[in-house]
Design a protein around this nucleic acid. Sequence first.
DNA 1: ATTAATGCAAAAACTTTGCAGCAAG
DNA 2: CTTGCTGCAAAGTTTTTGCATTAAT
Lengths: 164, 164
Amino acid sequence: MSQRKMQMIERLRRENVRLTRQREIICAMFADHPDQHFTADALWRAFYPEDAVGLATIYRTLSVFEDVGLIKRIDIGDGIARYELADEQAMPHCHLICMTCGRVQEIDGSGMEAALKNVRTREFVVRDQTIVFHGYCSECRENERETKARGKGEIEGGGQDAKG
Amino acid sequence: MSQRKMQMIERLRRENVRLTRQREIICAMFADHPDQHFTADALWRAFYPEDAVGLATIYRTLSVFEDVGLIKRIDIGDGIARYELADEQAMPHCHLICMTCGRVQEIDGSGMEAALKNVRTREFVVRDQTIVFHGYCSECRENERETKARGKGEIEGGGQDAKG
DNA sequence: ATTAATGCAAAAACTTTGCAGCAAG
DNA sequence: CTTGCTGCAAAGTTTTTGCATTAAT
């Protein structure tokens, strides 16, 4: 078994996540393809029919793995969730997505300047750039501080976003 | 009528896109809220019931506006498409998305350093960072060059991405 | 033995599409 | 008038969920 897969399984054990055949082969898939971006469907097909895993299980496993921090969800703007191995130290990187063939390339993005140079090197013509930071806004952190003693806080609502 | 809305309508006219009541009020909504991020559903509700617009029409209009370059689609990773005004000169900017309340804040992102400083200023705790460039890879541009004389090129397939 | 995970199928959520009627140019 | 747009409803996709069964610890 690969070093990487071992580490992943180790992590699952630490988090008290039960290790099943399904989880193990999904683990292996990510471990063996450290820089690929998998859709749930792609995984399902990759295993079918020999090591078939129910699609629902794949979705649930991806969710678990993401919660545990084993993999990272990436959205490239087509409404289909992709997942990649959450690489050590979460080295920031960019995704180059071809608007023609849809291929996803990965490049270093520790600095915007370096990233842009990298883009040029690959002769990739940038048509649009998206930078998204996920995290916690000051208000929510404040709220959480205040309501720490109470039950679960509201997850919905608030803010200036126009989501319905 | 606002300057911005006028410009947008001007643009539509230039592109030979027919101006309808529905398109005009959607236009106005974006013009009046230059830095909000609208979901199709949010727009639908905003107009309902007084200036009701069919949801299908909203989706189609958003698609048209995007093609024309009036608005820009942003994906923040929850599987729901949002649209924002495609600001003049497409000044690069980042989106700060709160993992608790879901609010989307917008900050300048012309340089990664500036962006990060900006993030700090807002006391936004970054948990994850995503940078995506959309554009055209060298292979596809080459293919296009070669097949310029032929009919439509394939849009699917190819590449190292694991999409099914 | 317990407790959690799986698989199936049904449902949900968002988006797209077919088609008849309507409206813009 | 002609062509393209709208609205409705039906269908399509991706993802989630309920529940009985199965498997991990």
